[in-house]
Simulated scan of single mutants.
Amino acid sequence: MDDRELVKMIGGIIGTDTVEDDCAKIPFGDDYIILSTDMLHETTDFPTGMTDWQIGWMSAAVTISDIASDGAVPLGLLLAAGLDRPERLKGIMQGAKACCDEYGASLIGGDVDAHSELTIVTTGIGRVEKENYTGRKGALPGDLVCIVGDPGYAQAALDGDARYRDYLLIPKPFVYEGRELSKAGVSSMMDVSDGLALSLYDLADLNGVGFEIDSGKLPKTLPQDYVLYGGGDFGLLFTCEESILRSLEVGATVIGRVISDAGVFVDGKTVERRGYVHKWD
């Protein structure tokens, strides 16, 4: 069993529409309040050698990236830390605050307790105009499939390529780009922190469509396996009409098209459904 199977079970209890996105949304006048929460553990989420400052930054960035994928502005962040050693808290909070400051959010509180393994939970609050909200649902056959960011860099760093170390340890959410994409009217959007291939499958399943990806349009700086299956990146995957792409002023790369047939394909061949997931035996 993996985390996606558990999410389906949760959807059966609280409603499938509530688990279609990484974020929840609450109507508030002409806006939506966007809420997202993430839990990170030292042994599974923080690479060996990370400083406490980097851990704090990453913990904030994970949640801010989810908020950005809805086209929202991050407003505030709560951080709860289960500490194996209390002296680690200062560096963690300094790193989280630096990330919040970078993206215009406030670190506004949280909780602290003792824990056998360092565990951090971040809960983010954002805001987006209702007309600019962009979730995962909305992709249509004929739309372009595009990415913002550099899929595979974080995995390459995790495997020892020092050239990409900052992509892994100090990830940069695409807040500005998410806002611009949502205002332009892209049809669907999500971040790719679990890997490009798995994100494509998530988006395809939700929309009842498929994706045909052109290998010639994927980034060439890394082997294709890194680009498709590497986790830990904070890029944005989105779909849109071709006319919308021409009006964008963000660094997006077209990698394929939405098709009516179910599945994810690269050059006509089925892509493995794999990426970063939590599993239970």
Rank of each mutant, 00 (worst) to 15 (best):
I213P: 03
P223R: 07
D233I: 07
L196E: 02
T239A: 09
D225T: 08
D194M: 14
T239H: 09
F234Q: 12
P219M: 10
V227Q: 05
Y201R: 02
L236E: 10
L236P: 07
V227C: 05
F234R: 13
Y229G: 03
C240S: 15
D191T: 10
D214H: 09
F238N: 05
L203T: 15
D214R: 05
D205Y: 05
S215P: 02
L222T: 00
M190C: 15
L206S: 14
Y229K: 01
G230R: 01
E212V: 07
G231Y: 12
D233N: 12
F238M: 05
Y229T: 02
G216H: 04
L236T: 13
G216V: 01
S199D: 11
L222N: 02
G208P: 06
L222S: 04
D202S: 15
D202K: 14
L200E: 07
G195W: 03
T239R: 01
E241R: 15
L196H: 03
Q224Y: 09
L200N: 08
L218T: 01
P219H: 11
S215N: 01
G216Y: 02
L218Q: 03
P223Y: 09
L206T: 14
G195I: 02
E242W: 04
G208E: 11
T221N: 14
V227T: 13
D225R: 08
Y226K: 11
G230S: 06
Y229D: 03
E241C: 11
V192Y: 02
G195D: 01
L237E: 01
L196Q: 09
F234L: 13
G231D: 12
G230F: 03
Y201A: 11
F238E: 07
Y226L: 05
G230D: 08
Q224G: 04
Q224P: 00
E241Y: 07
S193C: 12
L228W: 01
L228C: 10
K220N: 11
F238L: 07
F211N: 06
T221C: 09
N207A: 10
L222R: 00
D191G: 11
G232N: 07
G195T: 06
A197V: 06
V209K: 00
G208W: 10
Q224K: 14
I244N: 12
L200I: 10
I213R: 03
D191W: 01
F234G: 08
D191F: 05
L222V: 04
I213C: 05
G235F: 09
P219I: 08
E241Q: 14
K220R: 11
D225Y: 10
G232R: 00
G216K: 08
L237P: 01
D205M: 02
C240I: 12
G235S: 10
T221L: 04
S193P: 07
Y201Q: 08
